[in-house]
Design a protein around this nucleic acid. Structure first.
Lengths: 150, 150
DNA sequence: CCGGATTTGTACGTATGTATT
DNA sequence: GAATACATACGTACAAATCCG
């Protein structure tokens, strides 16, 4: 690993390097990244730089880290739950506040989807659902499903 | 500002304190936050703690910071562009990679919406659009709009 | 259950660089 | 050019959570 002094900052380059290993599958979903000390030694970076690079990937939702354990490549649910958007509903995506993130038990780097319908607002974890247009109303109307709590 | 030693970490508490000032309107959209040195002096926090607290708000999409200028409360577009979801389309939300973020000129803490349709993928800045179900196909089919490049 | 090793988290300090005003 | 403001980069020390023998 060699850092280009003319390129972007060191931790961005380092994050790019690690991201590439994830996207290439070299670091598979569920796999543990090298520890901070390992990264420091192997690539000759300081601890702050190793941590900043990992933080970037965390904010991108690519990895999660647990104290005392390490940083793992995040595995997204194979099957996303379809979230049907009714004709009179609207949906926006945004990042949760820290409070919401803890409340909904979300990893860092996971947006929320805010569905507005009938004056109510429903929050969903963005990486568990896929939005689809609801079929136009017929005899019976299928109820929209709430995101399940873990 | 007093920090509870039994509570969450100092920078989380400090971020909560600043977030409250934003949500209460005390710090209005467009307003400049106190500079790092000002925060350090007024609230007796170290520079790393002031920076970490602001970083949290940045990752939540609440503020943006420019080097040499300062950190401002982000003002979201009053009018979001409606993004109509066709019956055969799907949409998911996620955080952009650093490369995508720069490419799309997004602030930190702004998710992207990925619309899958006809085997193509279209990316949209999550804070410029609101998703709606497209009206069922009639005589003429309204074309989906692409996100405009700035 | 306990102790030790490992791993990440928190908190502070310093110095220098870069962009803006 | 000077002052201000954020960014980068390195260092230290200790705390907290987890894991393992």
């Amino acid at each position: 690993m060699h850092f280009d002094p003319r390129g972007p900052s060191k931790y961005v380059q380092f994050a790019d390097f690690l991201r590439q290993q994830i996207e290439s599958g070299e670091l598979a979903p569920g796999a543990l990244l090298p520890s901070e000390s390992a990264l420091m030694q192997r690539y000759e970076v300081s601890r702050p730089m190793a941590r900043k690079a990992v933080a970037i990937l965390r904010n991108e939702g690519l990895v999660t880290t647990e104290q005392g354990v390490g940083t793992k490549v995040r595995e997204l649910p194979a099957e996303r739950q379809p979230l049907f958007l009714e004709a009179d509903a609207e949906a926006v995506a945004r990042m949760p506040s820290e409070h919401e993130r803890v409340e909904l038990e979300l990893d860092y780097g996971v947006p929320v989807i805010e569905v507005h319908i009938d004056g109510e607002i429903h929050l969903h974890s963005a990486d568990e659902v896929v939005l689809r247009a609801a079929a136009p109303a017929r005899a019976t109307k299928t109820a929209t499903r709430r995101a399940r709590k873990a």
